[in-house]
Write a protein that binds this DNA or RNA. Sequence first.
DNA 1: AGCACGCCGACT
DNA 2: GTCGGCGTGCTC
Length: 679
Amino acid sequence: VDKGIALILRVALDTPLRRAFDYLPPAGDSAAEPTLAAPPLGVRVRVPFGRRQMIGVLIGIAGESEVPAAKLKAAHEILDAASVFDPVTFELLLWAADYYHHPVGEVIAAALPVALRMVRARAAANRVSAGQAAPTAAPIECRPSEVILTSEQAQVVEAIGASLGGYRAHLLHGVTGSGKTEVYLRAIAAAVARGDQALVLVPEIALTPQLVERFRRRFSGGIAVLHSALSGTERRDAWRAAQSGLAVIVIGTRSAVLCSLPRLGLIVVDEEHDASYKQQEGFRYSARDLAVLRAQRARVPIVLGSATPSLETLENAAQARYATLKLPQRPGTARAPRLHLVDLRKHASDQGLSQPAIQAIGRHLADGGQVIVFLNRRGYAPALFCNQCGWAASCAHCDARMTLHRRAGQLRCHHCGAAAPVPATCSNCRHDLNPLGQGTERVEETLARLFPSAPRARLDRDTAAGRGALEAVLQRVHRGEARILIGTQMLTKGHDFPDVSLVVILDADQGLFASDFRATERLAQTITQVAGRAGRASRPGEVLIQTEFPEHPLLVRLIRDGYEGFAASALAERRHAEWPPYSRLAMLRAEARDSLALDGFLAGAADRGRGVGESVKILGPATALMARRADHFRAHLLIEAASRAVLQRFLARWIPVVETLAGPPGLRWSIDVDPLEVD
DNA sequence: AGCACGCCGACT
DNA sequence: GTCGGCGTGCTC
């Protein structure tokens, strides 16, 4: 035995430091078998870290360390006999840390429940058994479906089923109400019948209890649900069920893509266009993109489902990287709704409701239909103005107006959460104050005045706050107790309201002229998704879209040719302007209390970036759309590259330099690879 | 991020 | 005379 060969454990720890930490093996181990004691990668390790102890994950074994020998400490204990991650997941995590340029310890921490990383946890409860390759003793039964598939659905199920056992990405482009969920259920049943596990990603579990219910009704057991509202032990148990293979179907929000699944056989990403798949802070990964990579590495098929696919996904499908499966029609007698634009310049309106909209609401109510009124702005009014001197109530901490919440008797800032009492008069000139513009609360008031006999329900973050509140509102609508449903984008997330025959979109114009290059894509998706709530059963649907710009090319194309037509135009524009998916972006965002020093830091970072010698465009420093938020000034640099490879080469050289730059006290910066919002 | 150490104001 | 404010500095 060569005493000169040391065994160094490289351990990923949950700290924002962009490196792993080297340790000597636990004292007992190395003394007995100095070189043969190498534990497998992926096991948890309890180590001393500063004055405390932490549980990290072994990500490498080295023969030597760059850290001075005097600084090296011995690990306390190896906690597992085998990796807690299946090999594909483990490699995926290391890849993601690299690709998103995020500290590997935080990436792994995002994938491992806190309960399994607690130093003081009870050993028995903390034990993780190795992932099993064999299926469980009690097989999961799939109950027969009452739904008769359309021939289109049957073809789609067939195509997905035929791809089991190897990598294949399918775009399932199905209009709202076309029965995508039934397709998922059948495809998953086929995977489960092979003894495989299936992973189902959904944007927001709290908003889709109906989907989980449907899975539980269809399968006799073996379903684990992973989402942010779980308690520590619930999360640990669900994670362990997935990791041990006990759970056969795992339904979860974005972090579920990081979950260990030893027999993964199929991935479904529902509403793949949804922005909530991208984590917007810390480890800024895209669960949708990681899911595709995971499917590739695990050699399993993936289904990306949406009525309004992202332009990135449509381009992948156009390039034949993804197979396109279409469900262009609703089953049965249900028809796609008719969309109409209402020119707000031509028609008088009452608190944001145009005369044609008011008439249509009256007509549909009289016919026994339900009505959805959509406005993506909660509260009573987005501004409180003095009509004498023009003063407006603004947030003391942000560059933003306060929103009036009349029922709560408060002014609230929707950006930092600050609240203030409603002033009785203008603080400047003592004249009266007027609420300007409409939020859902005010629209509800107006509808109560116009249609006093029609019961209403309002669905937004204010009315859906608290346990069961959302369900209560939805129940009132389903039972037909509420005839008019007023709501924000919460309405767009997959709820099925069979009796809704009319949808009114009050303000289509937010987003038509926004600076963010994705704004029109989001608007088209929102309009199409909300419109899809109308006429889902036997009632023909009607959709009214109020706008001051009825000749805007986006709206015209969307109304005339549907979402696909819009997407074709939008992709042509993206290609011309060299935006994604025809280029790749990264953003360096920073915030600090001192705006001058903030710009200095970013200018320095940009300068050093130009010295890196990659052919990327460095745009900025630019001030964020809202320059000050929660007392911090915000600005950013935008990096634009022709390809992923160029962008990655640049970032790999540039980020370490940025780390060495001194910033003002309290400076916080982060790197966002493939950002969704670039305001 | 934690959690230390380290120097200057209002209390028993 | 102490308790404690949050400004730098380190974690293998």
